[in-house]
Amino acid sequence: MDAKTLIDTNKDEILRQWIEAVYSLYPLETTGFVRTSSDPFGNPVGDMTKQAAAAIYNAITGEDTAVDTVKAALDRFVKLRAAQRANPSQGLGVFYLMKPILRKLLLPQLAKDDLETYLGVESRLDSLTLLAFDMYASARETLADLRITEIRNQHAQLTRWAQKHGVISTSQAR
Protein backbone atom coordinates (compact mmCIF):
# COMPACT_ATOMS: atom_id res chain seq x y z
CA MET A 1 0.00 0.00 0.00
CA ASP A 2 1.34 3.47 -0.71
CA ALA A 3 2.32 5.53 2.30
CA LYS A 4 -0.35 8.21 1.93
CA THR A 5 -3.25 5.73 1.85
CA LEU A 6 -1.69 3.72 4.62
CA ILE A 7 -1.39 6.72 6.90
CA ASP A 8 -4.93 7.87 6.16
CA THR A 9 -6.31 4.40 6.86
CA ASN A 10 -4.53 4.25 10.19
CA LYS A 11 -5.29 7.80 11.29
CA ASP A 12 -7.65 6.94 14.14
CA GLU A 13 -5.39 4.22 15.47
CA ILE A 14 -2.29 6.43 15.31
CA LEU A 15 -4.06 9.18 17.25
CA ARG A 16 -5.52 6.76 19.77
CA GLN A 17 -2.22 5.09 20.50
CA TRP A 18 -0.33 8.34 20.89
CA ILE A 19 -2.97 9.80 23.22
CA GLU A 20 -2.87 6.60 25.27
CA ALA A 21 0.93 6.79 25.40
CA VAL A 22 0.74 10.34 26.76
CA TYR A 23 -1.94 9.44 29.29
CA SER A 24 0.11 6.54 30.50
CA LEU A 25 2.75 9.02 31.68
CA TYR A 26 0.36 10.04 34.44
CA PRO A 27 -0.26 7.97 37.56
CA LEU A 28 -2.64 5.05 37.10
CA GLU A 29 -5.21 6.54 39.46
CA THR A 30 -5.40 9.56 37.17
CA THR A 31 -5.43 7.93 33.76
CA GLY A 32 -9.00 6.68 33.89
CA PHE A 33 -10.28 10.16 34.46
CA VAL A 34 -8.32 11.89 31.69
CA ARG A 35 -9.36 9.13 29.32
CA THR A 36 -13.09 9.18 29.99
CA SER A 37 -14.10 12.81 30.46
CA SER A 38 -14.53 14.77 27.24
CA ASP A 39 -15.42 18.15 28.76
CA PRO A 40 -12.78 20.62 27.51
CA PHE A 41 -13.00 22.62 30.74
CA GLY A 42 -13.64 19.77 33.15
CA ASN A 43 -10.76 17.76 31.71
CA PRO A 44 -8.36 20.29 30.18
CA VAL A 45 -5.39 17.92 30.11
CA GLY A 46 -7.38 15.44 28.03
CA ASP A 47 -8.61 18.19 25.74
CA MET A 48 -5.13 19.64 25.24
CA THR A 49 -3.68 16.21 24.50
CA LYS A 50 -6.37 15.44 21.92
CA GLN A 51 -5.88 18.81 20.25
CA ALA A 52 -2.13 18.22 20.14
CA ALA A 53 -2.61 14.74 18.67
CA ALA A 54 -4.68 16.13 15.82
CA ALA A 55 -2.15 18.92 15.23
CA ILE A 56 0.77 16.49 15.16
CA TYR A 57 -1.05 14.23 12.73
CA ASN A 58 -1.93 17.09 10.41
CA ALA A 59 1.64 18.36 10.48
CA ILE A 60 3.48 15.09 9.95
CA THR A 61 1.22 13.97 7.13
CA GLY A 62 1.84 17.27 5.42
CA GLU A 63 -1.81 18.35 5.61
CA ASP A 64 -1.05 21.43 7.64
CA THR A 65 2.57 22.47 7.69
CA ALA A 66 2.29 26.26 8.08
CA VAL A 67 4.55 27.03 11.02
CA ASP A 68 2.17 29.54 12.58
CA THR A 69 -0.87 27.27 12.57
CA VAL A 70 1.15 24.30 13.80
CA LYS A 71 2.54 26.36 16.66
CA ALA A 72 -0.87 27.78 17.52
CA ALA A 73 -2.36 24.29 17.64
CA LEU A 74 0.40 22.98 19.87
CA ASP A 75 0.64 26.04 22.13
CA ARG A 76 -1.60 24.89 25.00
CA PHE A 77 -0.11 21.41 25.08
CA VAL A 78 3.50 22.58 25.09
CA LYS A 79 2.74 25.12 27.81
CA LEU A 80 1.16 22.35 29.83
CA ARG A 81 4.24 20.18 29.39
CA ALA A 82 6.44 23.13 30.39
CA ALA A 83 4.46 23.80 33.56
CA GLN A 84 3.86 20.24 34.68
CA ARG A 85 6.39 18.58 36.88
CA ALA A 86 8.93 16.99 34.56
CA ASN A 87 12.39 17.66 33.22
CA PRO A 88 12.66 19.04 29.67
CA SER A 89 13.37 15.68 28.03
CA GLN A 90 10.24 14.31 29.66
CA GLY A 91 8.30 17.41 28.71
CA LEU A 92 9.13 17.20 25.02
CA GLY A 93 9.86 13.48 24.70
CA VAL A 94 6.14 12.92 24.20
CA PHE A 95 6.49 13.89 20.55
CA TYR A 96 8.91 11.03 19.98
CA LEU A 97 6.37 8.62 21.40
CA MET A 98 4.82 8.91 17.95
CA LYS A 99 7.72 7.19 16.15
CA PRO A 100 7.37 3.64 17.49
CA ILE A 101 3.62 3.88 16.86
CA LEU A 102 4.13 4.92 13.24
CA ARG A 103 6.78 2.29 12.67
CA LYS A 104 4.69 -0.46 14.16
CA LEU A 105 1.54 0.43 12.29
CA LEU A 106 2.92 1.55 8.96
CA LEU A 107 6.31 0.00 8.16
CA PRO A 108 5.25 -3.66 7.79
CA GLN A 109 2.64 -2.77 5.19
CA LEU A 110 4.61 -0.13 3.37
CA ALA A 111 5.49 -0.68 -0.30
CA LYS A 112 9.30 -0.91 -0.59
CA ASP A 113 9.59 1.91 -3.10
CA ASP A 114 7.59 4.29 -0.91
CA LEU A 115 9.99 4.55 1.98
CA GLU A 116 10.77 8.13 1.08
CA THR A 117 7.21 9.25 1.81
CA TYR A 118 7.38 7.58 5.18
CA LEU A 119 10.76 9.14 5.99
CA GLY A 120 9.20 12.50 5.13
CA VAL A 121 6.63 11.87 7.83
CA GLU A 122 9.33 11.21 10.42
CA SER A 123 11.31 14.25 9.30
CA ARG A 124 8.28 16.44 9.77
CA LEU A 125 7.88 14.99 13.25
CA ASP A 126 11.49 16.00 13.96
CA SER A 127 10.82 19.54 12.69
CA LEU A 128 7.70 19.73 14.79
CA THR A 129 9.61 18.67 17.88
CA LEU A 130 12.17 21.39 17.23
CA LEU A 131 9.39 23.96 16.91
CA ALA A 132 7.98 22.66 20.16
CA PHE A 133 11.41 23.02 21.73
CA ASP A 134 11.38 26.74 20.91
CA MET A 135 7.93 27.06 22.41
CA TYR A 136 8.91 25.09 25.47
CA ALA A 137 11.99 27.23 26.08
CA SER A 138 9.91 30.36 25.60
CA ALA A 139 7.33 29.12 28.11
CA ARG A 140 10.06 28.45 30.67
CA GLU A 141 11.47 31.94 30.11
CA THR A 142 8.00 33.35 30.64
CA LEU A 143 7.79 31.48 33.94
CA ALA A 144 11.06 33.02 35.08
CA ASP A 145 9.96 36.49 33.94
CA LEU A 146 6.68 36.12 35.81
CA ARG A 147 8.56 35.60 39.06
CA ILE A 148 10.65 38.72 38.53
CA THR A 149 7.67 40.84 37.49
CA GLU A 150 5.67 39.66 40.45
CA ILE A 151 8.40 40.53 42.94
CA ARG A 152 8.51 44.02 41.40
CA ASN A 153 4.74 44.50 41.34
CA GLN A 154 4.18 43.43 44.93
CA HIS A 155 5.88 46.54 46.20
CA ALA A 156 5.29 48.86 43.26
CA GLN A 157 3.74 51.62 45.30
CA LEU A 158 6.19 51.20 48.15
CA THR A 159 9.05 51.56 45.69
CA ARG A 160 7.57 54.81 44.39
CA TRP A 161 7.28 56.06 47.94
CA ALA A 162 10.90 55.10 48.65
CA GLN A 163 12.03 56.92 45.49
CA LYS A 164 10.08 60.00 46.45
CA HIS A 165 11.81 60.08 49.81
CA GLY A 166 15.24 59.37 48.31
CA VAL A 167 15.52 56.05 50.12
CA ILE A 168 16.34 54.37 46.80
CA SER A 169 17.40 55.79 43.45
CA THR A 170 15.39 55.60 40.25
CA SER A 171 17.76 53.01 38.79
CA GLN A 172 17.35 50.80 41.86
CA ALA A 173 13.61 51.05 41.50
CA ARG A 174 13.79 49.40 38.12
Partner: peptide, 18 residues
Protein backbone atom coordinates in the same frame (compact mmCIF):
# COMPACT_ATOMS: atom_id res chain seq x y z
CA UNK B 1 15.43 5.37 24.34
CA UNK B 2 12.98 8.28 24.35
CA UNK B 3 10.50 6.00 26.10
CA UNK B 4 13.00 5.28 28.82
CA UNK B 5 13.84 8.98 29.14
CA UNK B 6 10.29 10.01 29.74
CA UNK B 7 9.89 7.12 32.20
CA UNK B 8 6.81 5.30 31.12
CA UNK B 9 5.19 4.03 34.27
CA UNK B 10 4.48 0.33 34.82
CA UNK B 11 0.97 -0.86 33.90
CA UNK B 12 0.16 -1.18 37.57
CA UNK B 13 1.88 0.89 40.24
CA UNK B 14 4.31 -1.03 42.41
CA UNK B 15 3.16 0.88 45.51
CA UNK B 16 -0.22 1.64 46.99
CA UNK B 17 -1.03 5.30 46.37
CA UNK B 18 -0.85 6.06 50.06
Amino acid sequence: TPQQLIADRPAFPDKHWL
